[in-house]
Write a protein that binds this DNA or RNA. Sequence first.
DNA 1: AGTACGTCCTGATCGC
DNA 2: TGCGATCAGGACGTAC
Length: 271
Amino acid sequence: MPELPEVENTRRYLIESRVEGVQIVSATVTWGNSVKHPQLEDFVLDIQGETIQSIGRRGKYILLNLVSGRILVLHLGMTGGIRVQRRDQNPSDMVRHFFDLYDGRQIRFIDPRKFGHMWLVDDFQQVSHKMGPEPLEPTFTSNVLRQIVNARQIPIKALLLDQAAIAGIGNLYADEVLFLSGIYPGAIAADLSDSSIELLHRSILSTLARSISLYDVDRKALWPEPSFGLPNWTMKRIIGAPCIQCGNPMDMIKVRGRSSYYCPQCQLRTN
DNA sequence: AGTACGTCCTGATCGC
DNA sequence: TGCGATCAGGACGTAC
């Protein structure tokens, strides 16, 4: 569920926490399956003494660019979150991994469901080779989106979830932008009209930007903090809940096994 | 090229 | 009340 905005805000949080330029003196991994590459023993040993140079992001991946040129790549999975805390501050049970910093703090990887992953690589390509464009880059124009959409004979919902098509959108944002665009989740991508794609493009940009801004307004809105909530979702993800636009009951279909909430009145099957 | 399903996990929720 | 079954979900692998 951490999708592009939550990951971007986690990146901003790390920068504001001033971990750039700080050395990692040791690492503790309590759930070895999280480490994907290379071997676990190498991972812990290799990370020692590395200094964080800068914090980046690609899609849903957080990139800790290290002075050596290597990259510590973090993926939050479904329930993962990052916090920077003093070593003497009691960690929650859900902290799976610790990176001890030279200044006495720790970068803590919280991950209740253990779906998060970590890599230490020379090149991000080693983690993910095929990734679609960043939707918030200026180069992601409606023309670019139209080319992507026109080329695929799959449900638009499935396309939005395909990280090789567009990077960073997950199940919740996909439903959100389809609702705002009035597009039925099961509609075949290549069948969408130019005007629908135009609307979809605008919805993607505005929805992602709005969610990122929540953290800029309130620093407590950092995933997975439940107190502030994430974006102001236009739907409650409950079958039968009234649509905020027309009042008719919302429904849910499965698209490629993913729950897809939509309004049968506002999201017609023809676009 | 596209679809279906299994895998990894745990906590919330459902049915009996 | 309490217990077991089911589901959710990101990314990837395998089979068709």
